[in-house]
Design a protein around this nucleic acid. Structure first.
Length: 261
DNA sequence: AACCCTA
């Protein structure tokens, strides 16, 4: 502003000053943003704007878990995936409801994956509720197969998520996604944790075991997910430690001092 | 158990 006054004393016309101002703004990279942000081609079609639709059949007893209370879950899925999701009313005599996902292929994959993970979560919680005793919990550890196969049915969900990151949707809740999928994918550490004592060492070993076989394609996702895995491993370690201690009975209550809490 | 959304 001071420079304006000085230059005006030298008699530089306003148009020249305006040009200089524009140039300086462009050199600072302020103006080009709008141009680079407009990735849409003149034809109006863009790789990110192609929309497709996909239909799913969801059992009635599981649709609630997908919708959530007041529709919070499905709204979250819509928001995070950026896809348009329609859930039809119940078709008579069939226990399935049809769910239509519309949007970018990436958005569709993401939404489909989120819905699938919701289904698996609902199924697992239903199983755990149907099996009251902790002995049955150990039984469930021996059968981790179904979630892995179901998640592998969709083509590389993690890679799709990585590709979707720059695009639009709000990254409000990344925690809901990776935890369940990773727990579903890796079944081995549970067995390693089954040994009773040394919770800290077991946790470290489990974290290392989980961290090693990551997919090469998703670097960012892996980097952000590792600490979460460490947390989960620690939690599982303490949990299994509690179980084993309770299974051992009240033989050595002073062993409880080993437990962090 | 949850019942949303958009036509």
């Amino acid at each position: 502003m001071l420079t304006y006054a000085v230059q005006s004393h030298y008699g530089i016309p306003h148009s020249e000053l305006a040009k200089l101002h524009q140039l300086s703004m462009q050199q600072q990279g302020l103006a080009p943003i709008s141009q680079s942000a407009a990735q849409v081609l003149p034809g109006g079609l863009d790789a990110n704007s192609q929309t497709t639709s996909q239909e799913l059949l969801i059992p009635n007893d599981l649709i609630g878990s997908i919708i959530g209370r007041q529709g919070t879950k499905i709204n979250e899925i819509r928001q995070v995936s950026g896809a348009q999701i329609k859930i039809g009313s119940q078709i008579d005599s069939t226990s399935d409801r049809h769910v239509t996902i519309t949007g970018t292929p990436i958005a569709i994959n993401l939404a489909q994956y989120l819905i699938t993970s919701c289904l698996e979560t609902a199924k697992s919680t239903a199983q755990s509720s149907s099996m009251p005793s902790p002995v049955d919990l150990t039984m469930s550890f021996t059968q981790p197969a179904p979630p892995a196969s179901a998640s592998s049915s969709s083509s590389s969900p993690l890679a799709a998520m990585g590709a979707a990151l720059p695009h639009a949707p709000i990254l409000g809740a990344p925690y809901a996604l990776p935890l369940s999928s990773l727990l579903g994918m890796k079944s081995i550490p549970y067995l390693a944790l089954s040994t009773p004592p040394a919770s800290a060492a077991a946790a470290a070993a489990a974290a290392a075991a989980i961290g090693a076989p990551m997919l090469p394609g998703s670097m960012q996702t892996a980097a952000t997910a590792v600490p979460v895995q460490a947390h989960a491993a620690a939690a599982l370690a303490s949990y299994t430690a509690k179980i084993s201690s309770s299974a051992n009975g009240m033989k050595k209550p002073e062993r409880q001092k080993f437990a962090p809490y």
